[in-house]
Design a binder for these strands. Structure first.
Length: 886
RNA sequence: GGGCGAUUAGCUCAGCUGGUUUAGAGCGUCUGCCUUACAAGCAGAGGGUCUGCGGUUCGAAUCCGUAAUCGCCCACCA
């Protein structure tokens, strides 16, 4: 490959006028990979490490991934170029619920029911599925340019990670931090499993508040009370009605019983202050089996609990009626039946929040069941402290509040899932119903024999818990388990790479994952898992809506790469993505990125097209241009360094963007550019290539492909070398004065160009420039070149027909043959005069204020004085210009 | 119900230890250019008084308070 490319590099005329990412990206990615340039092993250098937030193994790349992984890649690539031993570890997550759901659906389409399969058979289908679809997303990450060390690709269910999870479970159990118990849990009737609190998403929904009549038992007057509920189907499980004891409307009910409609069950009236008197009717039906609050009331008053639902959300035998019907169908039917009996008082519109499963979106059913839990309160303490004292730094820091709130109100974590796809809980039940917890079946048997006092117990006598662990129970170990830090806590890799450097993730998994990793880090390794957490924003569409499959508003990142190139997509995403702020994504952002690639490409074509000649003397313009640009370059290097340290990545990219486009292309290249088909002097040529080299290095973390491509055209290199390892210059000095002098020059040139535009003077026609007043002539040669000025002269009297503009304290004039529009000139000058008079008045007001002069720092006062004198000079120039006109 | 964040140009956003010229960028708009690196481009122009009100300060887009609007997170009100 290099032979061919080097040939094209010899002659830029062969480079296309447009950059074509397709031809370049695949080639370089392969080059990087085959030369193992992403690979890292422990050595003497300072480590820099990021672990990828493992995407769902069967998932595909979406915009959130694109953003998140671009940021990680930028950080890793930059670290490499700073001389660090940079490692980015990739991997995927087994995503228990969603993968199992996909496999179940696939089997169903083949007419196979999960219940007909053994656990082993099902798992073999699941592994087939994982191997077939797994890792697609990792291929997609390659398209994005992600410089992951693929040799280290891990999976939350592979051997090391599986065993790590089991070891941790046993460890926590033995520490008394894992327990098994009956609790009200969030049940997903579609996935048929319990969920943790974090996996429930509450959505506001338009629903109804049904007012139902419950007859008072044996009441001679035939009175009834009205109960308000959003879930009439649950009356099948009612075991009481509750009112507030202070509610005078209902004191007559004390000690009475009411009849549950349709089912005809007699239930007691209980009195508890939990009931709000002013909500609904003030009467609350109590269904201990299907509502967390009712459950607590049931416990308190010793009420029976009737579980009227099957696991799949249909009515169970215990419901008595509607057996086998779906809960939502029952809701409709029961209202018809109640209405027929005259038991419906009224139906109101009502907005309430309904819990949905994060994975399946099914409406969650609160359900009593036996599950495994992690006791969190003590585990959370060191993790809370670590973030509070910035040992783990959050960027932006506002997420500390969120974290603190969650950590200080942390609930026990329900970790068992009624699934097969995942790490099976290592608990083994004895014939008597008690259990032991152990890493292996052998160990479990030993423990069981010991516990039962029966040495003849065999493996067949003990039964392993069929449930699996929550996926997050494996991903919370990720920064440790990737380096085998759980099974071998003192190995070389974990010692070298842990704690990792940065974690990049979206804020919506701060509790699911980030908080728990921090907890796990302190608990299982005595150390934080990472130094910094960078929270990205959420990618939204132009209208601010979250991107989602159902809305169809999410572009496919691969399509975008196809259209704009990976660099274009990366650039577009990053320009709009400050930390922690959601980004309103618009394809025009990618267009900008693509255009920028093209700009770089064409700047390169220009430079490579020059013929250098060592016989030619370096012109003054080039000398001055080089002096100026190297200062601007150094200033930007420092600026970018500072911004990157603060994770202000989009600002850093903006700085680089402007440096390349505005300063380098629009000014520097134009200043040093030789006349058409003329050779350039060797010195300027070499300097320009040097600048280009530094610019490419600076750009590389953001735009890896085009920079690698051009870097290889720039200079000869050996096979296996890459810009990836070219080092960034650091701590270069610059002069602010040289830069500001050039800024003034830009104003002068812009002034000349404006006059040309307004007067319709072609750029080709050379002009004469007259200068009146105090002006530095050091950069005059550049003014000549950039403004196409043939002579610059000092002058005292303004010619009658000269158009003019003012920069600093000097007036610049272009004598014109045809007369000028006096009125317009005067108007313009008057406006400018007014502006500066206002400005001057402000400055003088400050300076006249004794307290300002006394209190403000010296430098600030000096600056005000400088502003004053500058404004005075400018005003004087304006005045003389006006006088000359009038 | 609690908490957090936002409100700056037509749009999307910078401006994060108060003073760097009475606010910057990109996109869009307007004007003139196919000037042999780039029309995916070049050269220019216009456009905001920083959501309202009050305060602190010599000085406020920046700090404090308050109101309004929007967004997010958390919470067991049927």
């Amino acid at each position: 490959m290099s032979e061919n490319d080097n040939k094209t590099a010899q002659n830029s005329a062969e480079l296309a006028t447009k950059y074509d990412p397709k031809a370049v990206e695949a080639k370089w990615y392969k080059y990087w990979e085959t030369h193992r340039l992403f690979h890292s092993e422990p050595d003497g250098r300072e480590p820099f490490c990021i672990v990828i937030p493992p995407p769902n193994v069967t998932g595909i790349l979406h915009m959130g991934h694109a953003l998140n992984n671009t940021i990680q890649d930028i950080l890793v690539r930059r670290a490499r170029m700073e001389g660090k031993n940079a490692l980015w570890v990739p991997g995927t997550d087994h995503a228990a619920i969603s993968t199992e759901a996909k496999v179940v659906a696939k089997l169903a389409s083949e007419g196979i029911k999960k219940t007909d399969l053994s656990r082993e058979e099902f798992l073999s289908h699941a592994w087939d599925w994982t191997h077939k679809y797994g890792g697609i997303i990792l291929q997609q990450l390659r398209k994005l340019g992600a410089s992951c060390d693929w040799e280290r690709t891990a999976f939350t269910m592979d051997d090391i990670r599986y065993r790590s999870v089991i070891r941790v479970f046993v460890d926590l159990y033995r520490k008394g931090l894992i327990y098994r118990g009956v609790r009200m849990v969030n049940w997903d009737p579609q996935a048929l499993t319990a969920l943790s609190d974090e996996e429930v998403i509450y959505k506001e929904e338009q629903s109804k508040l049904y007012h139902l009549r419950y007859k008072v038992e044996d009441d001679p007057e035939g009175r009834y009370i009205v109960v308000a509920t959003t879930r009439p189907e649950t009356i099948l499980g009612d075991t009481a009605v509750c009112v507030n004891p202070n509610d005078e409307r209902y004191t007559w009910l004390k000690g009475k019983r009411v009849i549950v409609p349709l089912v005809g069950r007699s239930v007691p009236i209980i009195m508890d202050e939990y009931v709000e008197m002013d909500f609904g009717t003030g009467c609350l039906k109590v269904t201990p089996a299907h509502d967390i609050n009712d459950y607590m009331l049931g416990e308190k008053y010793n009420l029976p609990s009737i579980d009227i639902f099957n696991d799949n959300g249909t009515i169970s035998e215990k419901g008595g009626i509607y057996i086998g019907m779906d809960r939502f169908d029952v809701r409709k039917q029961i209202m018809i039946d109640l209405d027929a009996k005259g038991l419906v008082e009224k139906i109101e519109d009502y907005v309430n929040k309904v819990g949905h499963s994060e994975r399946t979106d099914a409406v969650i059913e609160p359900k009593l069941s036996t599950q495994w839990f992690v006791r969190m309160a003590d585990l959370a303490k060191p993790a809370l402290e670590g973030v509070e004292n910035d040992e783990v730094k959050f960027v932006p820091s506002k997420f500390k509040n969120l974290y603190r709130h969650w950590m200080t109100n942390i609930k026990d974590w329900c970790i068992s899932r009624q699934l097969w796809w995942g790490q099976q809980i290592p608990a083994y039940y004895l014939p008597d119903g008690s259990f032991v917890v152990a890493e292996t079946p052998e160990e479990a048997l030993d423990l069981a024999r010991e516990k039962s006092g029966n040495p003849s117990l065999s493996a067949d006598d003990i039964r392993r818990d069929p449930d699996c662990l929550d996926t997050w129970f494996s991903s919370w170990l990720w920064p440790l388990s990737l380096f085998n830090g759980i099974l071998e806590p003192d190995n070389e890799e974990i010692r070298y790479y842990y704690p990792t450097t940065d974690l990049v993730t979206a804020p919506d998994i701060i509790f699911f994952w980030v908080a728990r990793m921090i907890i796990a880090g302190y608990e299982f390794h005595g150390q934080k898992p990472f130094n910094n957490v960078y929270f990205t924003g959420i990618v939204r569409d132009k209208l601010g809506r979250k991107m989602s499959k159902s809305l169809g508003n999410s572009p496919d990142p691969l399509d975008l790469i196809d259209q704009y190139g990976a660099d274009g997509l990366r650039m577009g995403l990053m320009r709009a993505a400050p930390a922690g702020h959601d980004i309103m994504f618009d394809e025009s952002l990618c267009e900008q990125g693509r255009n920028f690639c093209n700009k770089i490409w064409n700047a390169f074509r220009l430079v490579k097209g020059w013929k250098a000649d060592s016989e030619i003397e370096q012109p003054e313009t080039a000398k001055l241009g080089i002096e100026w640009f190297s200062n601007v370059l150094n200033r930007t290097l420092a600026e970018v360094d500072d911004l990157m340290k603060k994770f202000r990545i989009s600002e850093a990219l903006t700085a680089v963007y402007k440096l390349f486009w505005d300063e380098f292309s629009s000014w520097y290249l134009e200043v040093v550019k030789p006349a058409y088909s003329q050779p350039i002097d060797q010195k300027t040529y070499d300097e320009t290539l040097r600048f280009f080299d530094v610019l490419l290095r600076l750009l590389h973390p953001f735009m890896p492909f085009i920079t690698e491509e051009l870097w290889q055209h720039l200079a000869e290199r050996r096979d296996g070398e890459s810009i990836m390892y070219a080092q960034l210059p650091k701590d270069e000095e610059y002069s602010a004065e040289i830069i500001s002098d050039f800024e003034r020059l830009k104003e002068v040139v812009a002034g000349i160009r404006t006059i040309r535009l307004k007067r319709q003077i072609p750029n080709k026609q050379p002009l004469k420039l007259l200068v009146k007043g105090d002006a530095d002539s050091r950069l005059d040669t550049i003014i000549r070149k950039m403004g196409n000025i043939d002579t610059i002269e000092k002058c005292e009297e303004k010619p009658a027909t000269a158009a003019s503009f003012i920069v600093g304290g000097a007036e610049y004039m272009i004598p014109l043959e045809n007369s000028i529009d006096k009125e317009e000139e005067i108007k313009k000058l008057e406006a400018e005069k007014k502006r500066f008079e206002g400005f001057l008045a402000g400055v003088r007001k400050k300076l006249a204020n004794e307290r300002f002069v006394a209190n403000a720092p010296e430098a600030v006062v000096a600056l005000e004085h400088k502003k004053e004198s500058d404004a005075l000079a400018k005003l004087a120039a304006i005045e003389t210009a006006l006088a000359a006109l009038k």
